[in-house]
């Protein structure tokens, strides 16, 4: 499955277009993440992709110091977070701007911009669009 063929393809296309889009059940308005095609809560089939602002709060985090394969494009250490997006409660994995290595605090407010993470594999490079989060000043 690729970014263009999965149930979350509109999410990836949205990032490529500079927007954060999430699927919402057409039957009960419930946010559906991970993306799917049927709401297990109300039974409706179909979603509406709905834009949300790139603002969030820190849900949890880790700072990685070990050079794991597939992270070669990221300078060590790098900080990965789970961000709870405002006004929908969906949590996203993402990266945090952390130049001064200040430990994140759960609940801390964030604002995001769209960047990329380049994955180098044996067959080439794949720039994956992703949200880079920063703490609000």
């Amino acid at each position: 499955m690729t970014r263009s063929s999965g149930a979350d393809a509109p999410y990836w296309q949205g990032l490529a277009d500079g927007k954060l889009l999430f699927p919402r059940c057409t039957g009960c308005d419930r946010w559906m993440w991970p993306a799917g095609h049927r709401c297990g809560s109300c039974g409706a089939v179909g979603v509406t992709w709905t834009e949300r602002a790139m603002t969030a709060a820190i849900f949890s985090w880790t700072r990685t110091w070990h050079r794991f394969a597939l992270t070669e494009s990221l300078d060590l250490p790098f900080t990965s977070i789970v961000a709870e997006v405002d006004d929908c409660g969906i949590r996203l994995l993402g990266r945090l701007d952390d130049p001064d290595r200040i430990d994140p605090v759960i609940g801390e407010p964030l604002t995001g911009r769209i960047g990329t993470t380049v994955i180098r594999t044996g067959v080439g490079t794949d720039p994956i669009p992703t949200i880079i989060w920063s703490r609000l000043a």
Binding site: A69, L70, T71, S80, L93
Partner: peptide, 16 residues
């Protein structure tokens, strides 16, 4: 989603 966050190992997933 995981690759873009640099989260590629059980250690990182469990660390979070």
């Amino acid at each position: 989603h995981l690759l873009a966050a640099g989260v590629v190992s059980p250690a990182q997933v469990c660390a979070i």
